[in-house]
Each structure stands twice: as structure tokens, then as C-alpha cells.
């Protein structure tokens, strides 16, 4: 399992909880540390989940270790941009493009970022809560 004391020593600002690690603004350094071989080798990034909380977008990086069979959740809150982790995990590229497309978050360090699903000319970012609000009539269990 992960050694929390060692992690706290390197990164005093982070909050460690039972099921997640919370990092302010930018998770690149923490993820890079978690991936390194001398720590638990989190060798797979299963996915990046973005959620719009209106004031900020929460990014949740789901790491997995094939060695120890552990899942780890690294959470960070971002405004408009954050560091890309493509250098650490190549699988992050599509995830970052998707989040750029649907949430409008720019990933610094990913040179090839583009809209993944929507056409390049599309206006707006569909998964933001401010995007479309007129579908509420569909909820019929009031």
C-alpha cells in the first residue's frame, strides 16, 4: 500500500484521505512521484474524470498498479488550465483532448490538443453545467 508519510514529506500541502489524495491546482508532480519505481509503481492511468462544479472543474486521475493491484484517486481543482501528464502516461492524450473539448480546460505541455468529439468550429463546451439547461422537463419523478 502507499506510504503516506513519505508522500507528505515531499508534498506537505496535499490532503490524504482514505480513498483519495487532494492536490491544489496541479497534480503533475504528485502523479510523477507516485509513478516512480521507488514508490508504489502506479503504472496505469485508467482514466481522468472531469466534473464541473460551476466555480471550478474537478479533475480526478484514476491510477492503478498492476503490481500491487491498488487503485488510487488523485483529485485536483482547476480553473482554466493545468499541466498535461502525457509525458507520464501516453493514454492521457485522448482524455485531455476530451476534457479540453467538453469542459474547455487547457492542458499545458500537450502540444497536440484538439477537440475530440465536437467539430473544431463548435462553440461552447457541452459538459459544462452552464451549457444547456432546458432539458429538465424530462425528469418526471417530481
Amino acid at each position: 500500500m502507499i506510504n503516506i508519510d513519505l508522500l507528505k514529506e515531499y508534498f506537505p500541502d496535499i490532503t490524504v484521505n482514505d480513498d483519495y489524495i487532494f492536490v491544489e491546482h496541479d497534480a503533475f508532480d504528485v502523479i510523477s512521484f507516485l509513478k516512480s519505481k521507488n514508490y508504489v509503481d502506479f503504472d496505469v492511468l485508467t482514466q481522468i474524470i472531469a466534473t464541473d462544479y460551476v466555480d471550478f472543474v474537478q479533475l480526478s486521475y484514476r491510477l492503478y498498479s498492476t503490481v500491487s493491484n491498488d487503485f488510487l484517486n488523485v483529485i485536483t481543482n482547476v480553473q482554466n488550465e493545468t499541466s498535461s501528464i502525457v509525458k507520464l502516461y501516453k493514454s492521457a492524450h485522448f482524455d485531455e483532448c476530451e476534457i479540453y473539448d467538453l469542459f474547455g480546460i487547457n492542458f499545458i505541455g500537450n502540444d497536440n490538443i484538439h477537440r475530440l468529439y465536437m467539430p473544431e468550429s463548435w462553440v461552447g463546451h457541452p459538459l459544462l453545467k452552464s451549457y444547456v439547461q432546458n432539458d429538465e422537463r424530462l425528469v418526471w419523478n417530481d
Binding site: P126, L127, K129, Y131, D135, E136, V139, W140, N141
Partner: peptide
């Protein structure tokens, strides 16, 4: 499909 979820029960 992910956006659809937000307006359905």
C-alpha cells in the same frame, strides 16, 4: 451519453 444522464432520472 454522459450529458444525457444529467437531465434524466
Amino acid at each position: 451519453i454522459e450529458k444525457m444522464a444529467e437531465s434524466r432520472s
